[in-house]
Simulated assay, not measured.
Amino acid sequence: MDTVRWIISTAPEIFLLLAIAIGTLLGRIRIRGFSIGTTACVLIVAVLIGQLGSFTFPPILRAILFSLFVFTIGYRSGPEFFASLSVRTLAQVILALVIGATGLIIVLVFAYAFKLDTGTAAGLTAGALTQSSVIGTASGALAQLGLSKAALEQQEANIAAGYAVTYVLGYILTLLFVPFVAPRLMRIDLKAEAAKLEAELAGGAPAKTENLSYRKFQARAYRVSAGADRTIEAIEAEIGGRSVVERIAAVPTSRRTATSSSKLGTMSS
């Protein structure tokens, strides 16, 4: 145990990487089609490893890792968010605001009733709403309160602990609630409702069972043989509004004809 404490004090990054590695492997395990997921497994493993001692990571490392996390989330979800904004999604925006406000009010009530410290309350908010950005916001706010170094580190540790516990529970309970509890509360049969929706969308046509995989984007390639002296915009407009030129490659001279273009356009729609 003394060796473990020495490693924790000298190289705590080892346990950070160990939690990620073990959590990733556990997150790939499926039992009857059910999987907790990599994120939840990493948090569970980190909580268990955290019982070995007190881990103190360099502030610069935490800042870099958190910045990378926020960047990747925004890079992936940002374009989808702004692309989906319309009058039709107004109800979803209102629902998100209601859920956020309700979650914050509930956490504040419980924090006052159980006399929770600021860090724990912030961690509960971040984990219960599965909003990791709250961690950075709360940490920045705590840094402005003029707390001592020891008190600030304790509050930040409480944020992480509260987030890990509530995120795991909220994630697992949601996975169990949606397929098992919610249909009973709504008194519906998911399989029967799915069959009705399939028949409605099919418009009376027989069901197709040979290809049930969902594809967000369908890619196709086109050889543009009459694109000489034409702009890419004109070619995209002729093929279809959802077509985009991704790449242009030169065609070998031996393969050119009198009517073909000297360019090969690859489109995706």
Rank of each mutant, 00 (worst) to 15 (best):
A11F: 13
A226L: 11
V134G: 05
P79H: 01
L124V: 00
K115N: 14
R255S: 09
A151P: 11
I172S: 02
A219K: 13
S262L: 00
A157P: 08
L190S: 10
T89E: 06
G136S: 07
A250M: 04
Y75G: 00
K149F: 06
G265F: 10
G140Q: 04
A46M: 04
I49Y: 03
S269H: 03
S260H: 12
A160Y: 09
R215G: 14
D189I: 05
A219F: 15
G100L: 02
E13M: 13
E238W: 09
G74K: 04
S67I: 00
S225V: 15
K196T: 06
S54E: 13
S67E: 07
T125Y: 06
P12K: 15
L61S: 10
E198H: 07
L108R: 06
I106S: 08
A141P: 12
R220G: 14
K149I: 08
G23S: 02
A63L: 05
T72Q: 11
L145V: 05
L212Q: 15
A111C: 08
T120M: 08
I22W: 01
V109R: 10
R256I: 02
V98N: 08
V107P: 02
F110V: 15
G127H: 02
N158K: 06
R32P: 14
Q144V: 06
R32A: 15
L68C: 05
N211A: 10
Q155R: 05
S148A: 09
A249M: 09
T89M: 01
I99K: 11
Q51A: 05
I235H: 02
L142N: 03
A150G: 12
V107S: 03
T118C: 03
S86V: 04
K149C: 07
G162I: 05
V70S: 08
T39W: 05
T259D: 09
S225A: 11
A46L: 04
G50T: 03
E198N: 12
E236Q: 15
F180Q: 13
P183W: 01
T38W: 01
I20T: 02
M1C: 09
V87K: 13
V165Q: 01
G240D: 08
I73C: 14
Q218D: 13
L52G: 00
Q92D: 11
R30L: 09
F71D: 03
V93H: 00
I239K: 06
I44N: 02
R215L: 12
L147K: 06
T166Y: 05
L85S: 09
I106R: 02
S262N: 14
F217I: 14
A40W: 04
A219M: 15
F57K: 11
I105R: 07
F81I: 01
G37R: 05
G227R: 06
T231H: 08
T3R: 15
L124Q: 02
F71L: 11
V181F: 03
S67W: 12
